[in-house]
């Protein structure tokens, strides 16, 4: 079970580091921490409450956290905020109920994580940062 977490899709996504870096003029910047290990993501967004123009992140974490951050970095630019919120919900449903993701099929790479409760937070950390960033962007 533990070994299955580290299949090629997760390793490749983590290594690609899509979206790694910083924005020149972010509209929103949030930091999120995993208290278990001290992992941290700093996530920046530019755009409107309806659509994301640009996203960048600086992620210090395990492969699962880095893969999740990279996936966000790949998919978020140009996406609607509604689409991003749906992706966050899809990931939570995948981890808690095993529901396959339809909007972001790449989330399927995290399916083996469902069986390891202690690692859910690793995958969720970047998505929680994204949710908080969207809240701020939308003025909630």
């Amino acid at each position: 079970m533990s070994e299955r977490l580290y299949d090629e899709a997760i390793l490749a996504e983590a290594k690609s580091q899509a979206g790694a870096g910083a924005l020149e003029c972010p509209a929103v910047r949030v930091e999120a921490d995993n208290p278990l290990c001290g992992d941290r993501i700093t996530l920046e967004l530019a755009g409107s409450p309806a659509r994301i123009e640009a996203l960048a992140h600086r992620t210090r974490g395990c492969l699962l956290t880095r893969a999740a951050a990279s996936l966000i970095g790949r998919r978020a630019p140009g996406a609607s905020t509604a689409d991003l919120r749906a992706a966050i919900a899809e990931l939570e449903a995948l981890l808690t109920a095993g529901t396959p993701a339809e909007r972001w099929p790449e989330l399927a790479m995290f399916t083996p994580v469902r069986a390891v409760r202690s690692r859910h937070d690793c995958v969720l950390l970047p998505f929680r940062a994204l949710a908080e960033a969207l809240d701020r962007l939308e003025g909630r």
């Binding site: 533990s2 070994e3 977490l5 580290y6 290990c37 974490g61 395990c62 390891v116 690692r119 690793c122």
Partner: peptide, 12 residues
């Protein structure tokens, strides 16, 4: 290598 990745693989 992140400690959690290491511990997870060693668990196997």
């Amino acid at each position: 290598v992140h400690p959690h990745d290491l511990c997870q693989l060693l668990d196997s």
